[in-house]
Design a protein around this nucleic acid. Structure first.
Length: 267
DNA sequence: ATGGTGGCTCTGCCA
């Protein structure tokens, strides 16, 4: 069973790219982030033409997550329980379209778009950490309920867990940038401590191994990336991993997303 | 050359 996660940065702008990748990648389940659309203008046919069921969750041009599967899909869930809401500057807080879950061939898969944080002092950073804490508490309880549960937490985590996961950690510190701070890294580590495993790292060791390259400053051309997209597996899934890789070729050329797909093969 | 991109959209905001 091949599972992948991909922040496509607009499903409409990327429809042709995603369709071509579905045709060549042999992926069974694809977790998608940043669809940047609502159901009304989601390109359903991209998936239907290729034999995939797809569930989408999006309200607007912001965020948006989806799961596509050609091995069946049941128990679709939009937002996780008690997912913290966000409302900038006193606006009514709302639960954003950042999490969708589905069971595909016995594996509970979540497509997650973790809040960015924006700056170290921004209220969005407080939101990011609360969001992660709430998700982690649930992820922990799912395993407490059933230690044999097959769970994959896949998505854009907007965290670089180690210094080697960014092209120059000193640059990030000097410029007070997000994704590398101790509270963010600690929030990520708590998922590992709860029993989840980064299923890709053993098959794609750093340094210099990334999943995202900023459009600005032509970071891809300069080989200056970040590893921020992860598939974390519960013990029952992690023991099934046969191979994993980052499809960096997909970041090349005109019309690429700023993220590459990340792929895991399970026995 | 002290900037560089891209995708939405109430051409500003978000990443």
């Amino acid at each position: 069973m091949r599972i992948a996660t991909w922040n496509v940065n607009s499903m409409r702008a990327r429809a042709d790219r995603v369709e071509a990748w579905l045709e060549k990648s042999d992926v069974d389940v694809l977790a998608i982030q940043e669809t940047k659309c609502k159901d009304d203008n989601f390109p359903w046919e991209v998936f239907e033409h290729n034999g995939y069921d797809v569930a989408h969750f999006g309200f607007s041009q912001w965020n948006g997550v989806a799961i596509a599967s050609r091995v069946g899909m049941s128990d679709v869930e939009r937002t996780f329980q008690n997912q913290p809401p966000f409302g900038k500057g006193g606006k009514d807080p709302v639960q954003e379209a950042r999490a969708i879950g589905a069971t595909c061939d016995g594996v509970r898969i979540w497509s997650l778009y973790v809040p960015n944080g924006r700056t170290r002092e921004d209220e969005h950073m407080v939101y990011k950490l609360a969001w992660l804490r709430q998700l982690r508490e649930h992820a922990q309880s799912w395993l407490a309920d059933d230690p044999q549960a097959q769970i994959v937490l896949a998505g854009d985590w907007n965290i670089a867990p180690q210094d080697e996961d960014v092209w120059d950690n000193e640059f990030f510190e000097k410029n007070q940038m997000t994704h590398v701070t101790e509270p963010e890294r600690s929030a990520f580590r708590e998922f590992l401590e709860a029993g989840y495993t980064d299923m890709v790292r053993p098959h794609a060791e750093g340094p210099g191994v990334y999943t995202y390259w900023d459009y600005t400053s032509l970071r891809f051309q300069k080989r200056q990336g970040m590893r921020i997209d992860f598939l974390l597996g519960s013990p029952a899934v992690a023991q099934r991993v046969e191979n994993a890789f980052i499809d960096k070729d997909e970041r090349r050329g005109k019309g690429a997303s700023d993220h590459a797909p990340v792929v895991v093969d399970l026995a």
